[in-house]
Write a protein that binds this DNA or RNA. Structure first.
Length: 878
RNA sequence: GGGUGUGUAGCUCAGGUGGUUAGAGCGCUACGUUGACAUCGUAGAGGUCACAAGUUCGAGUCUUGUCAUACCCACCA
């Protein structure tokens, strides 16, 4: 039995528990079935569910449930990510509240704390995923730092190192001075800001009063200058090339060199070269063999190579300018728009810094990864993201994978006494390798750096399936079927997965990449905590049910475009669920037996045949749309069928039969009703798994809905469609006329059909239905002419004549209409006068004028309508 | 500087290969408690499909340009 009201909160969580307990999310592992697999984009363990997750996971669950219902062997592989920097940051912040720093604890204790913290709060996002209805196989849940995945990370690392694809190098990298670690290019965000350009001059060595003028946005780095560059094409300045100049304050002599990096058009044409703190200067330095002078400490304060050791860069900048001014070397300071790099997590300015770091040879790995997309083995949807992917991959830089953090996969690298590198999967192997190398046992020192989180995420498609061990799951499900993720993650994750998977497996990780957009607020602004415009999906679920939120996501998802949040719309889909709930209750109240088998092809009644055809058409449309990842088309097709065809028309049309005397018709209609409702449960289930299961179970169905088979390749009987579509047309037109002519709502009209076949034939079966829906006393066929008191309703298949005699008082109505028309005419005159007044039109605000025009148009339209009605009535009176 | 989107009803958005009268939800107006449902029903108002030119028998849809707007990448001494 169904409750009187639709209250999803009462049973959603319970239904989920039953599914999970029964093991329905596990793949069948039936070898004869086609495999289908999605690996979940691992959520940050520290995270809580946001709208982006809700979208991402809803789409995946729809695909998972749909394919499961296709009878495939389906695995949705879940898991979470250790999210190095993000997690370490959260735990450090927690510790700070107790006045403890990670250094107080030491590395080992700190990592213990992180693990403990994960145990306590790490399950949140997975619990929230369950609230959404996600049918992933939780028994296979993985974590990027669990034992198996850590082993995969070490193995890949060792292999790549030995293949020369991972190497250590002293390079200029992006340095985050808050976390005191290197970060990759992708973790740096460029922000525009108004800064200052400082113009000052360096004296030329041995030429009193001669200077080279330079311009810079970062004067405090001048202590790291090891040259000044000028273009050899710079006619004005090229005479200085070859001379030396003096860095003031520290009085250091540096050469003036020729380099094309110095654009004569920019700045002063002469550039100070600071190879240790600028990516361009670094390249210049390499070309000219310039020494590197580091002027910063890891926390971005100035070091002892400068006169301002210990100062922050901003303090040092001021001090430098003050000193230069004192020395009389400042020329000018100008406002200058510039782009400053910030750490995406730390929010502090990123400094290019010379350090020892580890790199993956991404340019080499990219070659295959590009090819597989070019040749179509991997397809991006929407397709234009392939261009973005190519663009990035073809210009890819070596990937800095080492992080000077504590939380993460410590690199499997050991150093011998002479710093010789041993890269092995564990300490024992490293030791024996060292023993072999040195001829005796030695003390080894392990590398303290950890790996970029995305290194382990990059292995996700195969590591979660059991790699490097032999695994039935790996054999069955790799390559996976489709990857669903946000477009913002293409570089971070999709590209890395392509490269790592192709390296490790020699096979693509997935066949299709479906990229969706961002969920924005209702006005299209990006959601952010600082703006305070975030919406919590769990709150939406509490308020409207998970099904409503899911359906919203599906219905809004078109071709990967961004989605604007709309609570009103979610409420609308809750209403849709209520509507369906009540339709099911209607069936229940009419003692419909849902358990009985029925061959829908045997239905005789027009209306029954019609709804069966519509149901099959909708099924086909949903299949076709989901096969092509057209989520909104699929959702809208079901929505329109359930609310429009089934509730608005079929239920109303079946009432006269259900309440009538014809037992044969009644029995068939009940059977068809049951068949259609069950079909709705089936095709709606991927979108709204909770309500469909609840109704299914409440109606006494024994088998589990989510394991039912989807129906394919049905014959659709299109013959019945035309008849019922005409009935709908007739009823709609009569209803319109009733309102337009102001007929009393309860008045029963006499109606006659003037028409030939097929309308006449349709009438045989359906006059009762038309009468009931259009509130007619009767509808008969009439061959002779219409009498005066009749109005014509023209339909596509014949004319319906409505007899108005006795329904309304013609004289009174005539008087009412005339009065109303007179009043409107009066109004129209006043609008016209106003709008013809040039003073009004020119001086009044545009809005007011437009409003006046709108009123005028409205009044004029209404007048026309009333006049038409009056004409009809006058005719009737004759 | 290079690239990718978007611009359709008051609001938020749909409109694969060009084809009757351009759709939906919300909002709005009028009416309505008829034996599933007021979380509802019936009817209705509301659009120069950003602008301009072109291709075509026919353009919201294709081409070119303009304007507006969002994002991505790179660079900026």
């Amino acid at each position: 039995m169904l409750d009187k009201n639709y209250n999803p909160k009462d049973w959603e969580e319970n239904i989920y528990k039953n599914w999970e307990a029964a093991g329905y999310f596990k793949p069948s592992m039936d070898k004869s079935k086609e495999p289908f697999c999605i690996v979940i984009p691992p959520a940050n363990v520290t995270g809580v569910l946001h709208m982006g997750h809700a979208l991402d996971y809803t789409l995946q669950d729809i695909l998972t449930r749909y394919n499961r219902m296709q009878g495939k062997n389906v695995l949705w592989q879940p898991g979470t990510d250790h999210a190095g920097i993000a997690t370490q940051m959260v735990v450090e912040r927690n510790l700070a509240k107790q006045g403890v720093s990670r250094h107080d604890l030491g590395r080992e204790k700190f990592i213990e704390t992180v693990w403990k913290w994960r145990e306590e709060s790490g399950g949140t996002i997975c619990r929230q995923l369950r609230r959404l209805g996600s049918s992933c196989d939780w028994s296979r849940e993985r974590f990027t730092m669990d034992e198996g995945l850590s082993r995969a990370v070490r193995k890949i690392f060792v292999n790549m190192y030995k293949d020369g694809l991972i190497y250590k190098a002293k390079k200029l990298v992006n340095w985050d001075s808050k976390f005191m670690t290197a970060v990759s290019d992708l973790e740096v965000v460029q922000k525009e800001a108004m800064g200052k350009m400082y113009y000052y001059r360096y004296p030329i060595e041995g030429e009193e009063g001669n200077f080279v003028h330079i311009a810079t946005t970062r004067p405090e780095t001048m202590f790291g200058d090891t040259a000044v560059a000028i273009s050899k094409d710079n006619e004005k300045l090229k005479h200085l090339i070859g001379k030396n100049c003096i860095v003031p304050i520290i009085n250091k002599v540096i050469p003036i060199i020729a380099d094309e990096h110095a654009d004569p058009e920019k700045g002063t044409g002469a550039v100070k070269i600071t190879p240790a703190h600028d990516f361009n200067d670094f390249e210049v330095g390499k070309r000219h063999n310039l020494p590197l002078v580091n002027v910063l400490n890891p926390d971005a304060t100035l070091n002892e190579n400068t006169p301002f050791a210990g100062m922050s860069t901003m303090q040092a900048r001021e001090a430098t300018i003050a000193k230069l001014t004192e020395l009389g070397l400042m020329d000018k300071i100008e406002d200058h728009p510039m782009v400053i790099p910030y750490g995406d997590r730390s929010g502090v300015v990123i400094e290019p810094m010379m350090t020892d770091q580890w790199f993956v040879d991404a340019p080499k790995l990219a070659v295959e990864a590009i090819k597989k997309v070019e040749n179509g083995e991997v397809q991006f949807l929407p397709k234009n993201y392939e261009k973005t992917y190519f663009e990035w991959m073809r210009n890819i830089q070596p990937w800095c994978i080492s992080r000077q953090l504590w939380w993460g996969h410590q690199m499997p690298i050991w150093y011998g006494p002479d710093e010789y590198i041993f890269c092995e999967e564990n300490e024992d192997e490293a030791k024996s390798a060292a023993k072999e190398f040195y001829g005796h046992e030695v003390e080894l020192r392990r590398e303290t750096d950890v790996l970029d989180t995305w290194f382990s995420s990059g292995l996700w498609a195969f590591s979660t399936l059991g790699w490097p061990d032999k695994s039935e799951f790996l054999d069955t499900f790799y390559p996976t079927s489709v990857l669903v993720t946000g477009f913002d993650i293409i570089f971070f994750w999709v590209a890395r997965m392509m490269m790592m998977s192709l390296y490790a497996m020699k096979k693509i990780p997935f066949k299709t990449v479906y990229l969706h957009g961002l969920v924005r607020d209702e006005h299209g602004h990006k959601m952010s905590k600082s703006k305070g415009n975030t919406v919590n999906p769990i709150e939406m679920i509490d308020k409207y049910g998970a099904d409503a939120l899911r359906f919203f996501m599906a219905a809004m998802e078109t071709q990967g475009r961004d989605i604007n949040m709309s609570e009103a719309r979610i409420a609308g889909y809750r209403n849709f669920a209520t509507k369906l709930w009540n339709a099911a209750r209607f069936g229940e109240m009419n003692q419909i037996d849902f358990g009985a088998d029925f061959d829908e092809n045997k239905a005789q009644g027009q209306v029954n045949r019609w709804i069966v055809a519509k149901a099959k058409k909708t099924t086909k449309e949903v299949s076709r749309s989901l096969n092509n990842f057209r989520f909104s088309d699929a959702a809208n097709a079901v929505y329109q069928f359930v609310w429009g065809d089934f509730c608005d028309w079929y239920i109303e049309m079946s009432k006269p039969i259900l309440y009538g005397e014809n037992e044969i018709e009644k029995a068939e209609t009940k059977a068809v009703f049951a068949w259609v409702l069950k079909r709705i449960m089936l095709i709606l289930h991927p979108f709204m798994p909770f309500i469909t299961t609840q109704i299914w179970n409440s109606l006494g169905m024994q088998d589990e809905l989510m394991l039912q088979n989807w129906v394919r390749d049905e014959k659709i009987d299109t013959q019945a469609e035309e008849a019922v579509d005409w009935v709908i047309e007739v009823v709609s037109k009569i209803r319109s006329l009733r309102v337009e002519m102001n007929l009393p709502a309860g008045a029963k009209l006499k109606a006659y059909l003037q028409g030939a076949s097929p309308a006449k034939d349709y009438l045989k079966d359906m006059d009762k239905i038309i009468c009931s829906l259009a509130r007619l006393e009767f509808l008969q066929i009439r061959e002779d002419e219409a009498t005066q008191d009749m109005v014509q309703v023209v339909t596509s298949k014949g004319v319906i004549l409505l007899a108005l005699q006795g329904v309304m008082d013609f004289a009174a109505e005539c008087e009412r209409l005339t009065k109303e028309i007179t009043a409107l005419e009066h109004n129209l005159r006043s609008y016209e006068a106003k709008l013809n007044n040039p003073a009004f039109v020119e001086k009044a605000p545009e809005k007011v004028v437009a409003e006046e025009r709108r009123r005028q148009r409205e009044a004029s339209d209404k007048k026309k309508k009333l006049e038409e009605a009056l004409t009809i009535i006058e005719k009737c009176m004759k």
